[in-house]
């Protein structure tokens, strides 16, 4: 009895671990080369937003606010310039989109097939995914 349970335990563990069917492999993630640029951008926007709020609270004088705001905008411009440089270097086009709170679905206006990622052309019918095109 105990030997049977022991054998079952070992066998179960081995089979579950070793037999991986191709369908259970995860799809490769879409990695954006602009990720760190986006992070830097988000950081500055966050800081700008905080700065504005602190002004409203009266924690800063108008001069302090104006000075820091100009600095932040300069930093932001630098990040945007870097992003453009990277774009040129990689030779790609990009779009900026706000992340919606829920996973957005992109529907092909021609064949109504749904996709997780935004695409320029539909993966099913091949027509342009942009509305009105």
């Amino acid at each position: 009895m105990i030997i049977a349970i022991a054998a079952l335990l070992v066998l179960g563990a081995l089979l579950y671990t070793l037999i991986v069917r191709p369908t259970s492999l995860p799809e490769p993630e879409a990695l954006s080369p602009f990720r760190h640029v986006d992070e830097a951008k988000a950081r500055i926007y966050e800081n700008l937003r905080d700065l504005q709020f602190e002004l409203r609270l009266g924690k800063l004088s108008d001069e302090d606010y104006a000075r820091t705001k100009v600095d932040l905008q300069k930093e932001l411009a630098k990040v945007l310039a870097d992003a453009d440089a990277l774009k040129a270097e990689l030779g790609v086009q990009t779009t900026s989109k706000a992340v919606k709170p829920k996973a957005a679905e992109f529907v092909c206006p021609h064949c109504a097939k749904k996709f997780k990622e935004a695409m320029k052309f539909c993966g099913a019918c091949g027509k342009s995914m942009e509305a009105g095109a």
């Binding site: 600095d71 905008q73 300069k74 930093e75 411009a77 945007l80 310039a81």
Partner: peptide
Amino acid sequence: VPAMTDEEVRKYQ
């Protein structure tokens, strides 16, 4: 602050 000229900043304003 990054050495950006005002003109460059305006471009992204």
